[in-house]
């Protein structure tokens, strides 16, 4: 039931935030005032259908502008979503997460990489270097920096904006060069990786996931494990696409809140809640250690 509900929410969110049909017909983008608001997930604002702005693109745009060094507005929006939902955004509201999940359905041998794999730290490095430091310090003569993450890494931008616009807009087609080829290569890499690994981009690359992950241990939305019910059968870990030991780390920064562990638990020890209160004595086994990991 949770699976269907989540899929529905993902599809409705993806469609409703990318419903500017005229953009897909004309090969252009929406230019209205809704674009001043950021959507919670990674959704390129140059997607022909996009009605809102990507938080990571917007963060770089403000940091890289000549006028500002930091964006209170975008950081405020990300902190707002993060403190309420944490990585629930990744699991339920991000269109690029949904795309990776669909690709992962392609029949193949699946690789289950532990959530403890050090590759998870790559996304924090990308956040620091490509989203903050480079746009802030590598600037032109008038003090403007490039959105380095969008320009050199983001496969969501290539898929949602680059390819549709190149197909629909002949003038843009004439301008493609080496960077476009590089980005298409990264997109193909992401697609191939997504066939074998669940959500590889979210787990290892996404700077927005890195930020929301830091909120997971303290967000209003949280998972709880009832110690007295948990039999440590590890079925939650086996069901988790990110391979998190949920019974030990219910609020791991890697958890995308898909709810698979809740479904898999034979004793109903795992529950989710949205509340200010920390709990009623139900918490993860070794929970202090858990929150740190």
């Amino acid at each position: 039931m949770v699976k269907i509900k989540r899929k529905l929410v993902q599809i409705i969110t993806a469609i409703s935030t990318n419903s500017y049909i005229a953009g897909f017909i004309k090969g252009d983008i929406y230019k209205g005032k809704l674009k001043q608001f950021c959507v919670p997930g990674l959704n390129c604002y140059s997607c022909p259908g996009a009605l809102g702005s990507c938080p990571i693109g917007s963060l770089q745009a403000v940091i890289g502008s000549a006028k500002y060094q930091i964006s209170f507005y975008v950081l405020g929006i990300i902190t707002f979503f993060g403190s309420l939902l944490g990585r629930f955004v990744c699991g339920w509201l991000c269109p690029f997460g949904l795309i990776q999940e669909w690709i992962h359905k392609i029949p193949s041998k699946k690789l289950r990489i532990s959530s403890k794999n050090p590759a998870k730290y790559l996304k924090y490095i990308i956040l620091l270097v490509f989203v903050i430091v480079l746009p802030m310090f590598v600037v032109n003569r008038i003090g403007m920096g490039d959105p380095f993450f969008c320009k050199y890494i983001c496969p969501a931008g290539t898929l949602e904006a680059g390819i549709p616009l190149i197909i629909l807009n002949p003038s843009l087609r004439q301008a493609i060069g080496a960077i476009f080829s590089w980005k298409v290569f990264l997109l193909l890499l992401t697609i191939v990786a997504s066939i074998f690994i669940a959500r590889p981009f979210c787990r290892f690359i996404c700077p927005l996931g890195a930020i929301y992950g830091m909120f997971n241990p303290i967000s209003f939305y949280k998972l709880r494990v009832a110690d007295e019910k948990c039999v440590r059968c590890n079925k939650c870990t086996k069901a988790c696409p990110i391979v998190i030991e949920t019974y030990k780390t219910p609020n791991s920064p890697e958890c995308i809140r898909c709810g698979e562990c809740i479904q898999a638990c034979p004793t109903n020890a795992i529950t989710s809640s949205f509340s200010l209160k920390e709990g009623d004595g139900t918490k993860g086994v070794n929970s202090k250690k858990a929150e740190i990991q």
Partner: peptide
């Protein structure tokens, strides 16, 4: 249109 996002 964000040319960097598009890859141009």
């Amino acid at each position: 249109i964000c040319l960097e996002c598009v890859g141009i």
